[in-house]
């Protein structure tokens, strides 16, 4: 699980071009949207692509992303439950 979290942080930084951010800057329970990391609506859609590309998990409704992408914790939980 810890490996998955670290891998996720690296993937988030790379895919969303967060040049100013390091893996250490993202706490597992830090809100990714709103305050926290300050991601926006396009980032959320790009995270859906990340889930599909890298973990083979397809979301049918982008609204599902709201819960899943709250924090690195919630993302890693979801991935470990659903990855193929």
């Amino acid at each position: 699980m810890e490996n998955l979290k670290r891998e996720l942080k690296e993937q988030i930084i790379e895919r969303l071009n967060l040049e100013d951010v390091n893996v250490e800057d993202i706490a597992d329970d830090m809100p990714l949207f709103g305050g926290g990391l300050g991601l926006d609506s396009i980032d959320a859609l790009e995270l859906i692509v990340l889930l599909e590309n890298d973990y083979g998990i397809e979301l049918t409704n982008p609204e599902e992303g709201k819960e899943i992408f709250q924090t690195v914790n919630s993302m890693s939980d979801f991935i470990s439950r659903n990855r193929k």
Binding site: L16, I42, D43, L45, E46, V49, E52, N53
Partner: peptide
């Protein structure tokens, strides 16, 4: 067969 990137499209 890739997935179109929303952040590139904009």
């Amino acid at each position: 067969g890739g997935i179109p990137s929303p952040s590139l499209f904009v």
